[in-house]
């Protein structure tokens, strides 16, 4: 969905894709044992929390780059400040916000 051509992150996608697959394969090869250990609670609580942080980084990087490779990218800087903004204007706010301006954004 990109509106401009940019270099696609093939390398990152492949590296993080392999890492993500390896992590999933590693965990699910010993899924029952790992789940049983994590289910002991107490200090074992660090297990699932650390695991999801690791997966969110590795799999998150993979999925983000995957969408870019597939050409699905952000198209505009969506955020804008309403005219009600800032300290000096707080008491005399405008009532209408301008439509967000379009701009190309690669993220």
């Amino acid at each position: 969905m990109a509106t401009q051509t940019a270099r696609k992150p093939w390398g990152k996608t492949i590296v993080f894709g392999i890492l993500s697959a390896a992590l999933y394969a590693g965990v699910f090869a010993f899924a029952d044992t790992i789940a049983a250990h994590f289910a002991q609670g107490s200090y074992w609580a660090a297990g699932p929390i650390a695991t999801v942080f690791l997966f969110s980084y590795v799999h998150g990087e993979f999925t983000g780059n995957l969408w870019s490779v597939l050409g699905v990218e952000a198209t505009r800087k969506a955020a804008r400040k309403p005219e009600t903004a800032t300290t000096s204007t707080a008491t005399k706010p405008a009532t209408v916000r301008p439509a967000a301006r379009r701009a190309t954004l690669n993220a």
């Binding site: 289910a39 609670g41 609580a45 999801v52 969110s56 999925t63």
Partner: peptide, 28 residues
């Protein structure tokens, strides 16, 4: 000890794909 890490990781596998697409969608 109530978290089933297997279920979490399966759901996370799909949701990380979805959440990025949804975030991109807000710019369109």
């Amino acid at each position: 000890g109530m978290v089933d890490i297997r279920l979490v990781l399966i759901i996370l596998g799909g949701s990380l794909l979805g959440v990025q697409l949804g975030a991109i969608g807000t710019t369109y």
